[in-house]
Simulated scan of single mutants.
Amino acid sequence: MALLVLAPWAAECSWGGFTLQNVLPVVLILAPLYGGAAVVIREIARRTGGGWPAIILLAAAFGLFQAALVDQSLFNPRYLDDTEFADWAGAANATRVPVLGFSAEQAFDYIGNHVALSICAPIALVESFVGAQRRHRPWLGASGLAAVAVMYVLGSLLIFFDDSGRKSFTASPLQLLFAGSVVLTLVGAAILPRFRHRRTPATANAPRPLWIGMVVLVAHLASWLVTGWPAVAVRAAVVAVVATVIVIWSRRAGWGQRHVLAAGSAGLLVAAAQAYLVPNYAPASPTAALVGDVAVSVITLTLVGGAFWRLSRTPTPVRPT
């Protein structure tokens, strides 16, 4: 239940997208979509033994599925027209990919935010509060998993058939084929390969969790200073480097849930700080916007601080898979 509620809040509210009075309706309406996806992804990864590599790949598949096939924001040039982000959509046209008709910069934003905020941060937080003996085990039986999966499908259909969101836009067959092929590839990579289970003996100690968080923080901030295709190139390079560094560090002795939490919560902290700099989806008074942003800061710091406090009460770190 915590994951069902936390995922939609992290996805749509943690970066200041809504005023405080709109948070509860947003969370309740979007819980089947974001929360259902987060629960299903975690259950699949834990049942197959794929661990965090599988979670990240499935999160990317979900992000693309959501942006390309459900709300189709990735392909719809008018998707943000009636929001306070209309100017951002215009700037994104500088990185529009010919034929396929999507902005590479928006693809990084949409899919990257789904990976970091919609899926990874909520799972890392909730698993940190759960006892070590249950942290990496499935939480649902077959019937529970099926119920959540159905809930996710219904939530996706609700968004798809909401014409006020898609604005009567429908992606072309080529766009749907491209996106569907990439989604299936990501899902296949997440559930099929078994080489990820092979571990070599650790030859060094993992760095402190603070350094993990700082590295991920740099990845989130890397593209703030540039726009257009240079930003896309910088993001791709930074993601590749950071992913390599974290994979290497995660194989070292002493790697535990605190490191996972530091990596997962870094994006949430960046989003909470960014809330003071970005507008709400809909126009709001300065007071309402500020109250909402302060609430985001309080909730984020409480969740992250509480998770680290919870882990501090576990004397022996449990190595996550």
Score class of each variant (00 low, 15 high):
R252M: 13
G131E: 13
G256D: 11
P201Q: 14
A307S: 03
A190S: 13
K167W: 00
L57I: 01
S250I: 04
T302W: 06
E12R: 03
V99F: 15
P201T: 12
I159E: 13
I29W: 00
T203D: 12
Q106M: 06
S118W: 11
L290Q: 06
I44F: 07
L174P: 10
L3T: 10
L158W: 05
S297H: 01
V40A: 07
S164Y: 05
A92F: 10
A2P: 05
P209E: 09
R166T: 07
G188C: 12
C13G: 01
R196T: 12
A190Y: 13
R258I: 12
V130C: 10
P283S: 03
T170V: 05
Q72K: 06
A31W: 04
Q257V: 13
P193E: 14
V245A: 14
P122V: 09
H114V: 02
G35N: 08
V187N: 02
G51W: 00
S250A: 05
E105D: 11
Y110K: 06
F161Q: 07
P207R: 08
H259A: 07
L145K: 09
F85C: 03
V153H: 10
L57W: 09
G144K: 12
Y110A: 13
L24E: 03
A307N: 01
L184M: 14
L28D: 01
W139I: 08
V278I: 01
D293A: 05
A107D: 08
A104T: 13
G141C: 15
P315H: 06
L174S: 10
W229N: 09
L58R: 00
I123E: 11
I248N: 02
R47H: 09
D71C: 09
L277I: 01
L64Y: 14
L268T: 00
V278M: 04
V215H: 02
A222I: 07
P193T: 14
S181T: 06
P138E: 00
L177P: 02
V40S: 02
L192T: 10
S285K: 10
P317V: 08
A271K: 12
G131I: 07
G228L: 00
D162T: 08
P317R: 08
Q21L: 12
V99D: 15
V226F: 14
T302E: 02
L217P: 15
A11H: 03
L177T: 08
P320H: 04
L177G: 14
L28I: 11
A206D: 00
E84T: 12
S128N: 05
F102Q: 15
L24W: 15
G305E: 01
F18K: 12
R258K: 11
I212W: 13
R134E: 05
Q175C: 11
R199I: 06
M151V: 08
L145T: 09
N113D: 12
A54M: 02
R194Y: 05
I55L: 08
A273T: 07
G254M: 10
A7C: 08
L184I: 04
N205G: 15
D109S: 15
G188M: 10
E105Q: 07
Q175M: 10
F18S: 13
S172M: 02
G155C: 08
D162E: 05
